[in-house]
């Protein structure tokens, strides 16, 4: 079995994986980081979004072995110790979730979006969320939360 070295949430990890092991399986089952969810398992819903080398990807559609040498960030890695990131806080305040299943993927996608574009328009936010499905909110409050977080982060 291939042995891989990677960084997950700033911690160095060495693991043996099968070729077929998906990145999301390594994260959830291998490392116990269950904040990353498996929704559709067909790269449509976005519940499994993590960052690989700073870019959001669907971790159900990438092999774990392909993350060898990569820097991986999951939802567990975006919050400051004991608190919430400005985006997470905004989702809380704007009721940007109901059941919460899609939320980790939303957080990872929106965090990358705001890193790339600190001044997004609402249309850009909606285009940026095309790979993340939410069946509760109708997206309205998620978009409002991201717009509010953008403002908060810009200061």
């Amino acid at each position: 079995m291939p042995k891989i070295n990677l960084t997950v949430n700033n911690q160095s990890v060495t693991k043996e994986v099968e070729g077929r092991t998906l990145l999301v399986e390594l994260i959830r089952e291998g490392l116990g980081l269950t904040g990353t969810h498996i929704g559709c398992d067909t790269s449509q819903c976005g519940a499994c979004v993590v960052h690989v080398n700073g870019q959001p990807v669907k971790s159900c559609t990438m092999l774990a072995v392909q993350a060898d040498g990569a820097d991986v960030l999951t939802v567990e890695g975006v919050s400051p110790d004991g608190g919430l990131s400005p985006l997470q806080q905004a989702l809380h305040e704007h009721h940007g979730l109901q059941c919460g299943f899609c939320t980790p993927g939303m957080v990872m996608t929106a965090t990358a979006l705001l890193n790339d574009n600190p001044y997004p328009t609402e249309a850009e936010v909606r285009h940026g969320l095309e790979g993340n499905l939410c069946r509760c909110t109708g997206y309205q409050n998620i978009v409002e939360a991201i717009m509010a977080a953008a403002k908060e982060i810009r200061g």
Partner: peptide, 9 residues
């Protein structure tokens, strides 16, 4: 094409 995550891969 697709969505942002698909475009990154």
């Amino acid at each position: 094409i697709g969505d942002p995550q698909v475009r990154n891969r």
